[in-house]
Design a protein around this nucleic acid. Structure first.
Lengths: 234, 234
DNA sequence: CGTTTTCTTGAACAGATTCAATGCGTGTGG
DNA sequence: CCACACGCATTGAATCTGTTCAAGAAAACG
């Protein structure tokens, strides 16, 4: 069995503070797996047996409500932890994680978490920071949905996608995994119809270029201005 | 100076696992203060110097957006921790905390957090659990705002208030601190006008009794049924 | 007893959803 | 290799839920 290379994770925030030996120890406890596009890393409400780190690819986190609606709380980027239910004292996953493209993932069984606490406190500290950041992000989402118009919210979501998961191309900044109108709708609490209309309008204005499951931001500042909205200013 | 009584906190979830000596040690590091109704325990974006436990009263947590809108992420009940920015690696408070009624609060300086980590790990573990729970609650909020009608959301908010902060009276279950229509609006992402109309309609139907900054739930089940909504059923 | 804060309620308006029909790409199977 | 089917996207029209605007009443406060 090929040993995982320490360099894979040495530079990532959760492991930055670890020595070579510690990195090896951490890796020795992990298992790497490949998840093809569309496959599920874990399912909402399933028993949480492990926590994960995304080595490459993009993962969509999805919550399904009792009445069948779906919302996308976030996308996971390379180098981020996810499925860290154990750090919150939870026994089940609160959402599903689906590979948005082909992914490579490290998994640690939950049973190693207590060891991490004592042997690698910098890792668990970083995990708690991650959770804190996500709590803040989620509060910002509530704020946005509560106070902003749909167009502003879509602008915010598209900007976040471009900034966090964007790849610079000849045309502009392209979201580097497939995003449908429906996905954006689930991120912003609206319908795919409205998203489609809004994106079409932006394309007309030259702010973006878009296509089937594709969004390319041309004018970042223009979008940002839209996102600020006209609630107090106008 | 009067020593704080151990019994004050012995039964609370964060401290349940501690021995008498440990409780004393924890209390010795704390400072108790009174906050009159309407006063601020800490302010949004201020440097976080301490974390808190609410001994008695109710605290409203408020976020103000750049454009002046306010949202109420949650109310803190007796026995709950709040202002735990330090556990998330934050240096400022993400929201303000205002006494909804006269309150008594324990405060620990952030500098003791590392000691808590090593000496009272059950306390910090409980703290992380609290943060995890709040993250889940907040995701539920996003879900609600994204998928439910205003009336359902208000029903959800009122039910939560009644269940978490309700006091049983002759009339029914009364929210035991002053809640204005504006407050409910800020919890549900709507306007005080709409809240007023909805509450009036419910009063008409005999589901609640309400008055100035007062809400008494008469028919819990009736409200719960409303909250489930007619998205899929009708 | 006047002032302020909270609450109520009508009327008009508007943003976004819903309904419905159609177009376009991509990938698959004949 | 082409045709067809399915998933994704677009766009009009009708509708509606909830906001906004406006005015006023009731309860608390000093």
């Amino acid at each position: 069995m090929p040993t995982l290379d320490r360099s894979l994770i040495a530079k990532l925030p959760p492991f930055r503070a670890l020595s070579s030996e510690e990195l090896s120890a951490v890796l020795a406890l992990a298992r790497a797996s490949r998840y093809p596009k569309g496959s599920e890393v874990f399912a909402q409400d399933a028993e949480a047996h492990a926590f994960y780190l995304l080595l490459s690819g993009h993962v969509r986190v999805v919550r399904t409500t009792p009445d069948g609606h779906q919302i996308v709380p976030r996308y996971i980027n390379e180098g981020e932890l996810f499925g860290i239910a154990v750090a919150m004292g939870r026994t089940t996953y609160p959402a599903s994680a689906v590979a948005a493209v082909d992914c490579v993932v490290l998994a640690w069984p939950n049973s190693v978490w207590p060891q991490f606490q004592s042997r690698f406190p910098s890792v668990t500290a970083s995990t708690y920071e991650t959770i804190g950041t996500r709590l803040q992000d989620t509060h910002s989402r509530v704020e946005e949905i509560s106070t902003q118009q749909v167009e502003q919210r879509i602008a915010g979501a598209v900007l976040r996608l471009a900034r966090q998961s964007g790849r610079t191309t000849a045309e502009g900044i392209e979201v580097d995994f497939p995003v449908s109108r429906q996905d954006v709708a689930e991120m912003t609490g609206t319908t795919l119809h409205t998203v489609s209309r809004v994106l079409s309008a932006w394309e007309e204005k030259g702010l973006i270029v878009s296509g089937r499951q594709k969004i390319v931001v041309i004018d970042l500042n223009g979008l940002a201005t839209l996102g600020e909205g006209r609630r107090s200013s106008t």
